[in-house]
Amino acid sequence: MIVLASRSDWSVLTPLLVQSVAQTLEMVVVTLLIGGFLGLVLGVVLYGTRPGNLFENAVVYRVLDIIVNIIRPIPFIIFLAAMQPLTIKVVGTSIGTTAAIFPMVVMCTVATSRLVEQNLVPVDPGIIEAARSMGASKFTIVRTVLIPEALAPLILAYAFLFISVLDMSAMAGYIGGGGLGNFAIAYGYQKFDQTVTWTAVIIMIILVQVVQGIANSVAKHLLKR
């Protein structure tokens, strides 16, 4: 049984909580918009360059596959540290919300690419061949056949990705990125205030439930069409 005993002044903590929620949403939304799009492109390239697919190219596929396999398993907290020199060159600093977003985008791009590739593989090759026989260009097939056919599982994959990015944003506190993770650690865990910690946890759970619920609803609607 968890006993919540607050020792903190919420008149002070509430503005900090609101700021933390805003920082988390900023990190997650920007990361998903940029990393999600770049990952979609990279995932299509990974799928397309596989043997027997639209843009078959063994060399390109092998190189990209190795890069993804190298980056994806790295724990994000270690990835943050490893990316510090590059983050400083690109962003100008290694501290703060903006500095946290850059490595988040890189990791999100890599994770998204694999999710996209895995969800495109099950698409019926017969549908693609039918489109090719009708004279559709490769890029037209990607845009009007491939992605629409895999849209429902892709939406669910992006909902799963949202959870991963939210998890990454919680670790951003280690480099001064702010957000709910930093709020929970700095004002909850380090001050032995479980109410503060669980407030942050509950907000993150609510965010996940809302996004997952929307994704499930949209995917279900698409599958019924």
Rank of each mutant, 00 (worst) to 15 (best):
T97Q: 14
T199Y: 06
S113G: 15
I71F: 08
V218K: 01
G173R: 14
L32K: 02
P103N: 07
L42V: 08
R72K: 11
T49Y: 01
D193F: 07
I74P: 09
D167A: 15
N53R: 14
L161S: 02
I2H: 01
V30M: 10
R225P: 00
A82V: 15
G52F: 05
L33V: 15
N182I: 02
S217L: 10
V63P: 03
V210E: 02
T87L: 03
A81T: 15
V145Y: 00
I71K: 02
D65L: 09
I101E: 03
Q194A: 07
G48K: 00
V110G: 12
T98L: 15
V59F: 14
V30R: 00
I147E: 03
A157I: 06
H221I: 11
L17Q: 11
I203M: 03
I34N: 03
E117P: 10
M134E: 14
F37L: 11
Y189G: 13
G188S: 15
Q23T: 04
L222C: 12
S169G: 08
C108V: 11
V116P: 05
F76C: 00
W198K: 01
L13S: 13
L38Q: 06
G92R: 13
I155S: 11
I141R: 07
M168G: 07
L38M: 10
P73F: 11
G39W: 07
K220Y: 15
V63F: 10
D65I: 04
A130D: 02
L223K: 10
S6Y: 07
V45E: 10
V21H: 00
G39T: 08
L156W: 01
I127R: 13
G176F: 14
A111I: 14
A130R: 03
Q19N: 10
G52H: 01
W198R: 05
D124E: 08
L54E: 13
A184N: 00
L16R: 13
P75Y: 06
I66C: 11
S169E: 15
T109K: 03
F76Y: 12
I147P: 07
D193W: 07
N57G: 02
T109N: 01
I147T: 01
V208Q: 10
S164C: 05
Q23I: 00
A159T: 00
I128C: 03
V63E: 04
V91F: 13
F102V: 01
L207M: 09
V12G: 10
V165T: 12
P148L: 06
Q84K: 04
V210N: 05
G126F: 06
P153R: 05
N182S: 15
L33I: 15
P153S: 05
T109Y: 03
V30D: 08
G188I: 11
A131W: 02
V110C: 07
E56T: 11
A130L: 03
G96C: 05
G135E: 06
S137R: 05
T87I: 03
R132P: 01
S20N: 14
R225G: 14
I34Q: 02
Y61F: 15
L207Y: 03
P51D: 04
E26A: 12
F192Y: 13
P51T: 09
M107F: 14
Y174V: 14
G39N: 14
N57K: 00
S6L: 13
L13F: 08
Y187S: 11
S133P: 04
N182M: 15
V218M: 02
A219C: 13
A186I: 06
S137P: 00
K220A: 15
N57V: 04
M204G: 05
S137Q: 06
M134R: 06
A172D: 06
